[in-house]
């Protein structure tokens, strides 16, 4: 397997709580991989460790065979690892279009296309328009995040992360608060991104949606990996059934 993201033995302890316990896994290039687990399983802490929002106690994170675990978070982002949050973290005083442009300053696209320099803003505008069109956000381009619906806000967050031109996108609870139709609206967009070559790691606790969307799943519980496999394999795994149906003990 050609793995774009390789995680080895990642651990984090907060005082007496072992939030992430020696987690190792790979994400194949171009894949749409899921990380599931009940609330409190350590999924978000895990994402924070990978993006260096928090520093791991042990373990390594390699993106395209380059170490990320010893870099600060801004360098991890510049290297091509983008993420979204459970809660809206768009820049609240900037319009949707301006939020995308901000992400382009240091993103992968900027490095290749010279977007950091004045006079080349035509490309920036072109890319902004492209992303707004793709996510059907053109009518909202000048709106502030506070004026957007939940669905539009989530689309804008994903568009902002994509404006970084990442190699890998991690989406933390992207379907939270969505109806099934809204979830599948976003999924259609994500699938189109995957066809364009983007690798994605989806983190959510909604088993039903994740089973339908992801090609491969990792399951976390109590900070450790509980199971891994295709959706059918995970669905049939007794440990996973126990955790999700509460029959563990």
């Amino acid at each position: 397997m050609d793995a774009i993201l390789q995680i080895e033995n990642l651990s984090k302890r907060f005082g007496g709580v072992e939030a992430v316990k020696a987690v190792s896994f790979d994400v194949p290039r171009g894949g749409l991989v899921g990380l599931i687990g009940p609330n409190g399983a350590g999924k978000t802490t895990f994402v924070n460790l990978v993006t260096k929002h928090d520093s791991p106690d042990t373990g390594t994170v390699m993106l395209d065979a380059k170490p990320m675990h010893n870099l600060p978070s801004f360098k991890v982002a510049r290297a091509g690892l983008a993420r979204t949050y459970q809660k809206n973290r768009l820049f609240f005083e900037e319009s949707v279009a301006e939020n995308l442009r901000t992400a382009m300053i240091w993103g992968g696209a900027a490095k290749h296309e010279g977007l950091r320099y004045p006079g080349l803003q035509g490309r920036e505008e072109e890319r902004t328009k492209e992303l707004l069109d793709f996510f059907a956000l053109t009518p909202q381009r000048d709106s502030l995040p506070s004026g957007l619906s939940h669905l539009h806000r989530r689309r804008a967050e994903v568009a902002q992360a994509l404006a970084l031109a990442p190699k890998l996108l991690m989406l933390d609870e992207p379907f939270a608060g969505f109806s099934r139709d809204e979830a599948f609206d976003l999924i259609e967009h994500l699938r189109a991104c995957q066809k364009g070559g983007l690798t994605m790691l989806l983190i959510d606790h909604n088993m039903e949606v994740m089973m339908e969307v992801c090609e491969y799943l990792y399951v976390m519980h109590h900070g450790a990996l509980l199971a891994a496999g295709t959706p059918n394999e995970v669905r049939a795994n007794q440990d996973v059934i126990n955790v999700y149906l509460g029959a563990e003990t």
């Binding site: 801004f74 982002a77 510049r78 973290r89 820049f91 005083e93 901000t102 992400a103 970084l164």
Partner: peptide, 18 residues
């Protein structure tokens, strides 16, 4: 733009490569 982004959310700004 990076200054305004940092003012509105330092952590998010870092995740945008700032």
């Amino acid at each position: 733009r990076t200054m305004r982004a940092t003012a509105q959310g330092g952590e998010t700004a870092e995740l945008m490569g700032i």
